[in-house]
Structures are given as C-alpha cells and as structure tokens.
Amino acid sequence: MHLDEAWTSVSTSPVLGVALTLAAYQLARWLWLRAGNHPGVNPVLIAIVVVGFALWVLGIDYDTYMEGGSVIALLLGPATVALAWPLHLEMALVRRAVLPILLGVAAGSAVAIVVAVGSTRLLGGSEELALAMAPKSTTTPVAIALSQTIGGIPALTAVLTILTGITGAVIGPRVLTLMRVRNKVVRGLAVGVASHGIGTAQMIQESRTEGAFSGLAMALTALATSVWLPLLVPLLT
C-alpha cells in the first residue's frame, strides 16, 4: 500500500478523532494543573484550539473529525444524568435554598434574553441576529431548538451558545470573586444560569457544591428560557 493511501485510511478513521480529542484534552489538563488550576487556563478552550490547529495542519475537515468526535460527545448524555450524584449529596443545601434557586434562575434567565436581544439591536445587529442571540445562555440542544421556533439562525445560535459557555468557564469564577460573591451556592447558580454545561464543567473543578448548583441551574434555565422566550420575544421585536 502506498503512503498516501495508508494515511487516507488513518485520517478518515473515527479513531483519529477520538485520539486527537483525548490527546488535546490531556495536554490542556496538564497545562491547567501546572498553572495551579487557574480557570484562565481553561482545558476546554485550550483543547479546542489544539484540535482546531491539528485539523488545519493535517488537512482534515470537521465532518471527518466528528466521526470520532461524536463518539466522545455521545457521553454528554450520561454525564448530564450523572450530575444527579453531586446534587443528591447537596440536597440539604438545596432544600434550604429553594427560593434563591427558583427566583435567581427565573430572574437571571429573563435578563439574559432581554439584554441579549436589546444589546445586539442597540449595537446595530439585525433582528435575525438578535433572535439567534436570545436563547444562548441555555444548554446547546435547547438553544438550537428555541432559536428555530423564534426565527433565529440555529447554526449561529449554536456558536454563540458555546462561546457563552466558554466565557463563563474562563472568567466566570474570577468575575464572581471580583464581585465579592463568596457563597458557593450562589456562585454555582450564577455560572449555571449564564453559562450552562460548559460553565458547570468548570464549576465541578472548583468545588462539589458549586458544581452541583451549577448543574441544577443549568437544568432549570433550560426550562425557564423555554417559558420566557415566547413571552418576551414579542415584546422585544
């Protein structure tokens, strides 16, 4: 077999996508540990950049990469279910904080929509762009579905949603500290509302309480955003 044929069979194999993702993540995690768990050295962000660069160098397109990438992404389902475990361990705290949880999520998710649409329009963005922006604080599958129903651009919403998640993962904990928010329940809730699962993945690294409440807020925000959007969008457009 010729060299280029052999390379083609390897570069189109799903194994490559899996291996590349794991290698990039391992490298990113190592850097993060070396940086003393600094959230600015976010493993998700670094791994994304490393994989993107590797694909560019190797000349592999995204669809080919995703044959392997989707195998890893498939585990997001069971991992989301697994968020029940830290939440179960924190149930005593949840019971005491029912009101802050419900009203915090309700207010935060409404403000996310109103400010997203309002600021995009004020800065000269079209209504279509503003609508694509509206559901971006909720978890990606919900954001895409909602964008479709309100007349946004689903592909753009997917990009904005993931960028919102990365923003929360990279600077969320630091911003909360600067705002002197030390209560771990509140910190978890805030990042979960503003930055869904990607923010939650960071908060799990911070502490069990923050991770549990971020996961809970992510779940409730999916529901709250679905309720708020059809009510708020007619008022905003």
């Binding site: 993702t21 993540y25 995690r29 493993p43 993107g52 995204y62 990469y65 992404a73 991992a79 990607i198």
Partner: peptide, 12 residues
Amino acid sequence: LQLLFVPAGVGV
C-alpha cells in the same frame, strides 16, 4: 466533563 464539550467547541 470538560473533555466532552471539546468536539462541539471545535465546530465553533
């Protein structure tokens, strides 16, 4: 959990 978001992020 962070690992599982990498493929979608590469899409971005």
